[in-house]
Design a protein around this nucleic acid. Structure first.
Length: 799
DNA sequence: ATCTTTCTAGTTTTT
DNA sequence: CTAGAAAGAT
């Protein structure tokens, strides 16, 4: 049965009528008899979260506790009880995927397709919508373009150059980073604090930010940050506009509240001041985006920000075994900045569930091999590869797994690589479409003016820029003028004239052709398709295929403009691969997903927790890393395998690593520490000097590995680490930084190595060898057994 | 204007 | 080590 259009619901007055079970509203929504049945499917806490409709509500939803169910049922409940019409509900998410899922699931609940919920979307899409409505209030026109990261960087490069600043010393990327930070905090150029202004180019940061914003206005463009910042400005400075939205939004719902940044928070708070009916759902323990502006504080402070708020905890977990939950809970309990929840499960099949496995490998290749073997075993037992994931801290870790799986012939897919709309060929094609749709889009024009090569080089582009600036016209107009002069070579002039003529021709066809046909014509006539056909590179056929896919995907839109708007906001084009394959992804991209079996490799100090995060953010950084570990473990339904490797190649250098402190924070009761025999046996490792470990059980069923003990000592404040009885290897010479008594940073001291070429040395991984070259503290050594390698001096010793 | 060599920096990522 | 970008050579 498909539900009647929701707009048929009775029109409520200022105070919507109380719910009337079986009333017109409920029946129109297809909720007649089953009006209460959707509530019956909830547990008591979930039900409370759905039925507490008035006033501010914070739902602390732990991993796997039915967060989306609460959110969607709450919306359905608001609609079913006639409390609000679809367009009176503001529901914000972070990702398009989440927005889509919410829409679909509410649709399922009301028994049809959800229509009229025009304010359900991502922060950015709703921001864009607000901004288009009131663009003129901040100096934009409603049809503004939304710039992607690429465009932003190119624009900033121009601005930095225009200021006469050396772009090498002050890279545009860095400026982009600062501007992003400022926008995340809701700061316009004038609000940037003195301390921050000095962070870039000797205090010219603020000026560059202002220049960038000016330039955006001239281009009638907005970047992603503006989609939040500008609406905030509008709401702040225009009480009448704000009052209008207060009237409009009877109820507000926010997903993943722990990921909101300051600007988003301010935005929500302003809007919520109207009716105070704001419901935020989130999990402070899963806040892992601090580095891109998310403020855990927003969720920690909720009760202060919204006095009288109801806080509801969802702790009943429907996903994982008690062992997995026990391990994750014990780990996350080490964080101080948290509201505190403890997940539990009703599952009683614990007798045959596994504890969380912890094991080690000699190096990253060994690690990949061990995981590969484990997966093959699971596969033999009939497990689906689709139910297995490998979650890494940093993407460089993926490589060893890919290499291994290729040799094994094991199906895998990497999640979160370059997205469809970020690919070069797609961006180029889109740039053509943008110039057709919006001739003044200088950034798009610049991108494709010489792609494919038509002999319009840097010199000509500079000429165009100068003229455009002098005349205050778009580049394409400047080009049109320039071809009438003799300032450029005849050959270049012809090329430019042809290009402009082509754009005029395509523009003339906009109203006469279907936009998909026009798109094809543009790609053909511009020579763009031909360019890739002529390219002999291995990936060109794939690129051509992508271009076809792009044109196909335009079919779902009714105009070129509509399509472009979609693309700039929806940067994901997820094609659900159906083949059975192991998923490899970062911990960050795993948030929100779940698998039967999860492998968590690389739990080593420096990598996880990441040294850089520790150095830059100290204790807060450490807690965020710990939350990442928590997210990782809680992705598993039945099995979690945590691993660390003793040796890892980082930036081309072999480094010995210490097991992650997080391993120490797991409860023994829920953990199964296994000695990985391949660590010390096989692979001819004995030949490299590892044999001295042979007759020892390095774990003795507790964490007693050499590196582990060293880690313990370091944490206790012991000065130089020694290997206490485990041979004569000495760890890296290090300087340590303590914060509140806890080791947060440890960096290797650089300086002269003190070694000379020709010296014989011993290395724990590679054995004996002779130094053949020295570069600072990096040594090139010709090993007797392992060949020539580059290693840090602190990992070898004189023999 | 384009091809080749040199240099440099090097988590995490959505919109 | 290694990818990507900028400087230098043709």
């Amino acid at each position: 049965m498909s539900g009647l259009p929701l707009s048929r619901a009775p029109i409520p007055g200022d105070d919507p009528p109380a719910p009337r079970p079986g009333g017109i509203a409920a029946r129109a929504l297809g909720l007649g008899q089953s009006a209460q049945s959707y509530l019956d499917k909830l547990n008591p806490e979930q039900r409370l979260a759905v039925e507490t409709l008035d006033g501010p509500v914070l739902v602390l939803a732990g991993a796997g506790t039915g967060k989306t169910r609460v959110l969607t049922t709450r919306i359905a409940h608001l609609l079913a009880t006639g409390r609000a019409r679809p367009y009176e509900i503001l529901a914000v998410t972070f990702t398009n995927k989440a927005a889509r899922e919410m829409k679909n699931r509410v649709g399922d609940l009301i028994g049809g397709v959800l229509e009229g919920m025009q304010w359900l979307g991502t922060f950015h899409s709703i921001g864009a919508k607000l901004l288009r409505r009131h663009a003129e209030l901040v100096g934009l026109k409603s049809g503004f373009t939304i710039l992607d990261t690429d465009d932003q960087i190119r624009l900033m490069k121009q601005i930095i150059a225009a200021e006469g600043i050396d772009e090498k010393r002050w890279p545009a990327r860095q400026l982009a980073g600062w501007i992003d930070t400022w926008k995340n905090r809701g700061l316009s150029p004038k609000d940037v604090p003195e301390s921050d202004a000095h962070a870039f180019a000797d205090g010219r940061g603020r000026k560059l930010y202002a220049a960038y914003q000016d330039r955006l206005k001239t281009l009638n463009a907005a970047d992603f940050g503006d989609l939040i910042l500008e609406p905030l400005k509008i709401l702040r400075e225009n009480p009448d506009v704000l009052a209008d939205y207060h009237r409009r939004f009877r109820y507000m719902l926010v997903d993943e509240y722990q990921d909101t940044n300051v600007a988003q928070y301010l935005w929500l708070r302003l809007l919520a001041q109207g009716r105070e009916n704001i419901c935020c759902v989130g999990d402070d323990d899963q806040s892992i985006y601090g580095w891109r502006g998310a403020e855990v504080d927003n969720i920690l402070r909720f009760e202060k920000d919204f006095p009288g708020a109801t806080v509801i905890r969802l702790e009943r977990n429907y996903r994982s075994t008690a062992h997995i939950l026990g391990a994750a809970s014990h780990l996350i309990a080490h964080n101080e900045s948290r509201l505190g929840k403890t997940l539990f499960t009703d599952r009683t099949d614990d007798d045959d569930t596994a504890k969380v496995f912890v094991s080690s490998s000699w190096d990253s290749e060994e690690e990949a091999r061990a995981v590969g073997e484990e997966i093959e075993q699971l596969q033999r037992k009939g497990h689906l590869l689709n139910e297995i994931a490998i979650l890494v801290r940093a993407s460089f870790q993926m490589r060893s797994f890919e290499d291994r799986f290729v040799t094994l012939g094991l199906n895998y897919r990497v999640i979160g690589g370059p997205r469809f709309y970020e690919r070069q060929e797609i961006r180029d094609a889109l740039a053509y479409f943008r110039v057709v749709a919006q001739p003044a889009d200088d950034l798009a024009f610049e991108r494709i003016v010489n792609t494919p090569r038509r002999g319009i080089g840097d010199a000509t582009v500079k000429l165009l820029h100068d003229r455009a600036r002098a005349r205050r016209v778009p580049l394409i107009d400047a080009a049109e003028e320039l071809i009438e002069t003799d300032e450029i070579a005849a050959r270049t002039r012809t090329a430019l004239r042809d290009l402009i003529a082509a754009f005029n021709r395509w523009r003339g066809q906009v109203d006469h052709l279907r936009h998909t046909d026009l798109a094809e014509i543009i790609l053909d006539e511009s020579g763009y398709t031909e360019m890739w056909q002529a390219d002999r590179a291995a990936d060109s056929p794939g690129r051509l295929e992508n271009l076809k896919e792009l044109v196909r995907s335009m079919d779902g839109f009714d105009s070129m403009i509509g399509f472009l708007e979609h693309v700039s906001l929806v940067m994901d084009a997820d094609s659900e691969a159906s083949a059975d394959a192991v998923s490899i992804m970062t911990l960050h991209s795993a948030k929100g997903l779940e698998f039967d079996t999860v492998f968590l490799p690389g739990w080593e100090e420096g990598l996880f927790p990441s040294q850089r995060t520790l150095d830059e953010n100290g204790r807060a950084g450490l807690e965020e890393e710990r939350r990442l570990a928590y997210v990782g473990i809680t992705r598993a339904r039945k099995r979690a395998y945590i691993r660390f490797a003793s040796n890892r190649r980082i930036h081309g250098l072999w480094q010995t690593s210490i097991p992650s402190r997080f391993l120490d924070e797991l409860p023994e009761a829920h953990v199964d520490v296994t000695e990985d025999t391949s660590t010390y046996g096989g692979y001819g490792m004995n030949a490299y000097g590892a044999s001295r470990f042979d007759n020892r059980d390095p774990f003795q069923n507790t964490y007693a590995t050499p590196g582990w003990q060293r880690a313990q000592k370091n944490r206790g404040g012991a000065a130089e680490s020694t290997m206490g009885g485990y041979g004569n290897f000495s760890g890296p010479k290090s300087s340590q930084r303590y914060l509140e008594g806890e080791l947060v940073a440890k960096s290797v001291v650089s300086g002269g190595s003190g070694y000379k070429a020709g010296e014989r040395v011993f290395h724990q991984k590679f054995g004996y060898g002779k130094i053949t070259g020295i570069d600072g503290n990096k040594l090139t050594i010709d090993f007797d057994k392992a060949g020539s390698k580059r290693v840090l001096d602190s990992f070898v010793e004189r023999h």
